[in-house]
């Protein structure tokens, strides 16, 4: 057993020792914070089921309170919905009247109805071996009716055009490829331009009217021309540098997944022949099939390919 004196000394020494330990813990926290946080996280992990049990009544009470508030607000909500319903019915009547009037006007103007585009949907597979740097293959399955020049769209906007058609897949040339040129219209400044891909994320605008420069942030839509229907959303104008307008595409060109290819049925929209127009004579399919010139010369083959010696 310790003497009374020793016990008194020990009792007086306890607090300084404990304070020293606490200072040690403070220093440990400054030097090795992750170690202390690791212990705390272990304790929290250990207590996680208890926390769940503690918080559970609070969550239940919240749910009950929400339900209770919903029940008390029911009458008010009902009145509001009835009012909204009345307003909606009014607008429904207005819409029906306007639709009827629109139909009547169209009929009296001999309006030609627009054709509803046919479309197929396919999953994108990357195109590694194609002729373009920015093109994708689209798996549309067998029995599709996709033609060259059809328009590919994702959920947000224009993606590109179909350049080659296979039995199961089609190749879509994307709008940011070097070879892509799309005629577009600028929604606010009403100018026409050509959107030219340059292998970057945002294609450039070229050939815009010099007295109507594109406005920063304005909408870019397709211009109705040959196979391309008008008014498809493309993106917005952005000046990446002075006098260098580019289009920030709406479509997510980097993360393509599901793509739709639309056929706008353009066969009948060929422009009529103009009087006095000189038709360009089509080149023969295989220009090297006829007899070669100078075939009468000796030692000269008279047919293309491997000549007879």
């Amino acid at each position: 057993m310790l003497s009374i004196h020793a016990r008194q000394v020990l009792a007086k020494a306890v607090l300084p020792i404990l304070i020293l330990l606490a200072v040690g813990l403070v220093l440990l926290g400054l030097v090795r914070r992750p170690a202390v946080d690791g212990v705390r996280l272990m304790a929290t992990d250990f207590m996680a089921p208890a926390y769940h049990g503690l918080v559970w009544p609070q969550e239940r009470a919240k749910v009950w309170l929400t339900d209770l508030r919903g029940a008390t607000d029911l009458a008010k909500e009902n009145a509001r919905l009835r009012e909204e319903n009345r307003a909606l019915r009014h607008w429904y009547d207005v819409a029906v009247a306007l639709a009827a009037e629109n139909g009547r006007l169209k009929k009296s103007l001999h309006w030609i109805p627009e054709t509803v585009p046919q479309y197929v949907t396919g999953r994108v597979t990357r195109d590694d071996g194609g002729p373009y740097s920015r093109a994708v293959l689209l798996d549309v399955g067998s029995g599709h009716d996709v033609r060259i020049g059809d328009v590919a769209l994702d959920a947000a906007g224009l993606l590109g055009r179909v350049t080659e058609v296979g039995p199961h897949t089609v190749r879509v040339l994307m709008i940011n490829d070097d070879a892509s040129r799309i005629p577009v219209t600028l929604a606010t400044s009403h100018g026409d331009a050509i959107m030219a891909g340059d292998d970057t994320a945002s294609p450039r605008l070229i050939f815009y009217p010099q007295d109507h420069h594109p406005v920063e942030g304005e909408r870019v839509e397709t211009r109705g021309q040959s196979t391309m229907p008008a008014g498809l959303p493309v993106g917005t104008v952005h000046y990446s540098a002075p006098n260098r307008p580019v289009v920030v595409p709406d479509a997510d060109l980097d993360r393509l997944d599901i793509v739709r290819v639309f056929d706008y049925g353009d066969d009948d929209s060929q422009a009529p022949d103009a009087p006095g127009r000189v038709r360009v004579k089509k080149l023969p399919q295989n220009p090297m099939t006829g007899p070669l010139p100078f075939s009468w010369l000796p030692n000269f083959p008279n047919m293309p390919g491997r000549g007879e010696q």
């Binding site: 607090l15 606490a22 403070v26 440990l28 926290g29 705390r40």
Partner: peptide, 21 residues
């Protein structure tokens, strides 16, 4: 308290010991 709190380590412990003293 230190284990179940997320302040700077040791400060609560030291404060408690000082106030106890």
């Amino acid at each position: 308290v230190e284990i179940f709190s997320f302040g700077p380590p040791g400060t609560v412990l030291l404060s408690l010991l000082v106030i106890y003293g």
